[in-house]
Design a protein around this nucleic acid. Structure first.
Lengths: 205, 205
DNA sequence: GTATCAATCAAACGGTTGATTGACGCAGGT
DNA sequence: ACCTGCGTCAATCAACCGTTTGATTGATAC
């Protein structure tokens, strides 16, 4: 907040097209995977010619990497913000802070269902040439959450925090793929209890 | 056990080739998905010509369905056996029975890592044309486990049992993809506590 | 008015895909 | 010795893949 952000420059035509391509690719890669998506499908979904994909993004592989990079950036922002709020609240109300954190992550996944899908495809190494993205993106994020939890909750051993994060992550991601809107409240309630139990914060019942 | 099983007839050459094709396809589909696997790769891994795949199995799509069918059959057998043992033991020792059940499922997934991988690919609807396999295989299995748990543990409400199964399933499957052999004992211990806590069987600590 | 440039397009490129064909080797029965 | 049917193979097919090409458009600069 040291200076007012400069007004964003008017996006050029190239920026607009590039955004449409990346947006279309994000949805298609999340839904059908790398090998299941063709550059022609992406171009058609973006309302552009096939050649423009190579023109703006450089190629299918680069486009995939860009999609993954953005998905990770969005997740990083959401998790980072939630972790800050968690840290500020954890000392006074560890249980409430943990539940709020899980809630925000669930909300993020419900709002951006492509992120868990891409996360899972990354996990499966959907395309062998992108196996490195897993270690580049997912692992550090997981470890940062573990460390933040362990730092703010000194009574929780880091190993337990890590496995708790692991369990919550997979449970939420798995749920988001089969999301039936009516089941969200029920799942959210289960998630609250799960987090408290796995962190040993008095959720036993 | 009413009659001694007849000695299995000597497998014909066709049977041998078919098995080699299915075995190779299982591994490749699990590792690279449907679109990421070619009939040529499968044939090469089986040490056969491309044409023999079509000759024995009918086509790539039929082969994929066969692979999924067998993976589900194997899982059904493992889960079925574990559920029977669970039912026999649950009344006297619900906690021990639940832990033993989770243990056997983990062992099965470690022994057949292709099954969780195929399970996850089915979940992602790796190939859109096979979206039905999810509801055909996974859902009923999940519900049968939920019902068996709820029946043997009357103090556990079915809804809680379902979400417990859900959480355990995803946690185990996710772990099996990133399996690092040295971490298995630590994960197993976590899994025991997870099961007891999620079923409310006195695992709080 | 003219030259320039970014952005887009239809068309075509070489390569790969799943599937098919027809020939070949070889067992077992006649 | 001769046939018959099964299993396998190399060769081939049309369709599709990602990428490239050359031409066209419309706005901008001089």
């Amino acid at each position: 907040m040291t200076e007012p952000p400069p007004p964003p420059p008017a996006p050029s035509q190239a920026d607009l097209s590039r955004e449409r391509i990346v947006a279309a690719a994000t949805e298609l890669f999340a839904e059908h995977g790398y090998d299941g998506t063709t550059t022609r499908t992406i171009a058609a979904a973006a309302g552009l010619n096939v050649a423009t994909v190579a023109y703006h993004v450089g190629g299918k592989a680069d486009l995939y990497r860009e999609v993954m990079r953005r998905a990770h950036e969005a997740e990083l922002a959401a998790v980072g913000g939630a972790l800050r709020d968690f840290g500020a609240r954890a000392a006074a109300d560890p249980a409430g802070a943990a539940v709020a954190f899980a809630d925000r992550y669930l909300d993020f996944c419900l709002e951006r269902p492509d992120v868990p899908a891409l996360w899972m495809r990354r996990w499966l190494a959907d395309a062998a040439e992108f196996a490195g993205l897993e270690e580049e993106y997912t692992r550090p994020l997981l470890e940062s959450v573990r460390d933040a939890l362990a730092a703010a909750l000194p009574e929780v051993p880091p190993e337990r925090a890590e496995l708790a994060v692991w369990t919550v992550l997979w449970t939420v991601h798995g749920f988001c793929r089969s999301m039936i809107r009516g089941q969200v409240p029920r799942f959210r309630e289960h998630l609250h209890g799960l987090v408290l139990r796995e962190l040993g914060l008095g959720g036993e019942r």
